[in-house]
Every structure is written in C-alpha cells, then in structure tokens.
Amino acid sequence: MIALPALPRKYHGASVWALYALGFVPAISGFYLGATGQLPGNAIKEFEHLLGIWALRFLIATLCITPIRDLFGINWIRYRRALGLLAFWYVAMHFSTYMILDKYLDFPQIVADIAKRPFITIGMAGFVMLIPLALTSNNWSIRRLGPRWNRLHKLVYVIAAAGALHFAMSVKVVGPEQMIYIAVVTALLVWRLFRPRFNQWRRGTAGRPGMGRAA
C-alpha cells in the first residue's frame, strides 16, 4: 500500500476550496489569452477545445476516486463533488463558447447541429444528463433522495462514455490522444463491474472491515 502523509482534518475544507480555485485556472487563463488575442490561430476553437478536454479530464478524475480508494486505500471522497462540479462547469462553458463565441447565438444553426450531427447530439446528451447531477450535488439532496441519489449519480458512467465518444468523433483522424481517453474511460467503467468481486475477495483475504458504501 502507498502511504501518503495524511492531510490534517482541519485543512480538509480548505483543500476542497483550493481544488475549486485550481480547477478554474485553465478556463480563466484560456479566456484571458483568447480575449486579448494571444491564442494562436483560431482562438475561439482553441478555447472551445480547451474547455472540452478539461471537462473530460475532470469527469475522469471524478471516476478515479473510487478505484483509488479500492486499490490503494486512499480516501479522497471529499474531493469528488468538487471534481464532478468542475466537470459540469467546464461542459457548460464549452457549450456556451460554442453557442455564443463560435455560432453567434445562431439558434437555427445550433439546433440543426444538435439534431443532425451525431457527435454533437451525443455531446449535448451528456450535458443534459449532467444537469440533474449538478443540481443534486449538495448535502440536502443526498439526504432527501436517499438511495435514489446513488442510482441517479450512476448516470456519470453514461456521461463519461458520451464525453469520450464526443471527443473521438469530433476529430478528422482518431489518433493516440483520443484512444488514450477512450481507454482510460473504458478501464474506469469496467472497474465498476469488477469491484464488488474485488472488494469481496480483499475483505476475505485481509479480514478487513467494509470499505464503505458503493460509488
């Protein structure tokens, strides 16, 4: 087992806020460079793609929390809500950039894009599915929804798959970068199929108490 120095409990809250602050750095710096004409070439597309790729990265990070706990016994669950919400905000900014900066709010063209072009349909479906998850990412909703909250938030698996697919289908040639994202998302989803058996096996061998609730 990897042994990391544990963060004292009194810093837990602050570390979550630091994650939020750090998480928005790529968007803020990208917006600043683009708005001041410092992004080379097609500034709007560069910014749009930057937001999209960070959305996918935060989705992946959200999905990593559970396997990290399963495999290494490191519990970073306190960061999961922040990572998920960062993913939501990046997708929202990605879509807004496409709508406002790229398409100049040309709604007929935007609607046609969403309806006619499978990769945009899939991306849009991912965004729509993220909305209820973002709205229920608070303690009140967790208490209120009970076991239904867990079921609802399993949608993140579909959303991550949609995100990776949207990325791969958007490019002219699927290259190593897209394949890596697809492989990572696939591995994280496949882990969910194996983890009940894995945790059962480990409880059996290590004689440890339960590893906490399902995620």
Binding site: G34, G41, N42, A43, I44, F119, S170
Partner: peptide
Amino acid sequence: PRWSQATENRIGEGGFFG
C-alpha cells in the same frame, strides 16, 4: 457531415471579439 459550411471563422482578427 459533422459541421455546417455556411459560415467561416477568419483567423487572426483580434481574438474572441474581433
């Protein structure tokens, strides 16, 4: 098939708001 060709983005015209 994956995007409209009706409009285009002219490169190098002052960032986002050019």
